[in-house]
Design a protein around this nucleic acid. Structure first.
Lengths: 115, 115
DNA sequence: CTTGACCCTGACAGTGCTGTCAGACCTTAC
DNA sequence: GTAAGGTCTGACAGCACTGTCAGGGTCAAG
């Protein structure tokens, strides 16, 4: 399928589909005239990228993870540092949540001082 | 005092001090030769900006708030939409925390599926 | 064969800071 | 007067995308 259709089917903009490719996460076939030609495997990959992205991951991180992802349940094939990447990611999110919580506390105290 | 000293005293880089000014949050005097000349009030302002920034605020938001801030306890003078700005800010942070929490859940499920 | 819809590449814009560098002036002290 | 250190402005870079536009091919239908 061509890029427009894939975009419609996945909800990912054409721009981002091309960006995924530029970042090395996708490598669709090309037609004789240079059009990108995606198959179902690529569509699956896009869905995985989307899912991982929804988990707050950077494309760079996703790229490291992608080779390890085989199904979209998601299941993963044994990949050496897969667990580490995921665990690090969780830590990262925890840090951010912690920072935001502190900010919230500060803000709340400001708010209460305005009574 | 000159910018370097203020930077040392507040822990805010010279670069950022100039940036605050460019964004309209600070307006130090100038010496005859064009050097920025900060007084204690400016130093206080910088501390407030730092505090508000630590609460995750954008300089733009801080700028709206700044005229309302009088002390660094912090206390605020009655400013019309001060409460609204602060409340909006808290909502914003809550949204972000919510998003991160969802991401964490997704990630955690990935992680458990790799067992 | 023409029109419209789609695709291609490359590049610029914007976000919200933050660092760094260049080229030049000021200040202080020796 | 000269050297070191501080300051000035202006501009470019980077992050991690995401939109949009320009200029130009391609494809299918009528």
């Amino acid at each position: 399928m061509k890029i427009g259709e894939l975009s419609r089917r996945t909800g990912v903009s054409v721009r981002m589909l091309r960006y995924y490719e530029a970042e090395g996460l996708l490598a669709p076939q090309r037609t004789g005239s240079g059009y990108r030609d995606y198959g179902l495997p690529e569509e699956e990959t896009v869905r995985r990228i989307k899912m991982l992205g929804a988990a707050g991951m950077t494309l760079e991180t996703i790229q490291q993870l992608l080779p390890c992802v085989r199904n979209n349940d998601p299941e993963f094939t044994p990949c050496n540092n897969l667990r580490k990447i995921l665990a690090d990611q969780v830590s990262l999110i925890d840090e951010r949540i912690e920072t935001l919580s502190q900010s919230r506390t500060i803000l709340a105290s400001f708010l209460s001082s305005v009574n």
